[in-house]
Computed example of a mutant assay.
Amino acid sequence: MITYPILKKEANIGVTAPSSGVPTELHELITQASQRMTEKGFHVTCGETIWTQSKAKSASAKKRANEFNHMMQDASIDLVIPPWGGELLIEMLEHVEFDKLKEKWILGYSDTSMLLLAITLNTGMATAHGTNLVDLRGEYSDETTAMWKSVLATKAGESILQQSSELYQKQWEHNNPSPCVFHLTEKTSWKTIANEEVSMEGRLLGGCIDIVRHLIGTPFGDVETFSKKYINEEPIIWYFENCELSTTDLRRTLVHMKLAGWFNNCSGILFGRSAANMPVHDYTVNDVYEDLASDLQIPIVYDIDCGHVPPQLTFINGAYAEVKVSEGKGTVLQHFS
Rank of each mutant, 00 (worst) to 15 (best):
T314N: 09
H183R: 06
I237W: 00
V80K: 07
T120Q: 07
S60H: 12
E224K: 14
G124D: 03
H335S: 04
A65W: 06
N132R: 04
V280E: 14
E244C: 10
R137F: 00
P5I: 05
L215P: 02
C180F: 03
A126T: 01
A61R: 11
Y283D: 06
P219F: 09
I90S: 11
I2Y: 04
D222V: 03
V80N: 03
L26R: 13
T131C: 14
V332M: 11
N317I: 02
P18K: 02
K187W: 13
I216M: 12
I119K: 01
A153V: 01
E48Q: 15
F271W: 02
L136I: 00
L152Y: 07
T127E: 14
K149R: 13
C266Y: 04
W262F: 07
T192C: 11
T123C: 00
L204C: 08
M71R: 14
I90N: 01
L115P: 01
Q163S: 13
Q32R: 02
G217A: 12
T52G: 11
N264D: 13
V332W: 03
I304A: 13
T247P: 02
N69L: 15
C243H: 02
K191L: 15
N265F: 08
G272R: 01
D305F: 14
V280C: 12
T144G: 09
N69K: 08
A194E: 12
Q162Y: 11
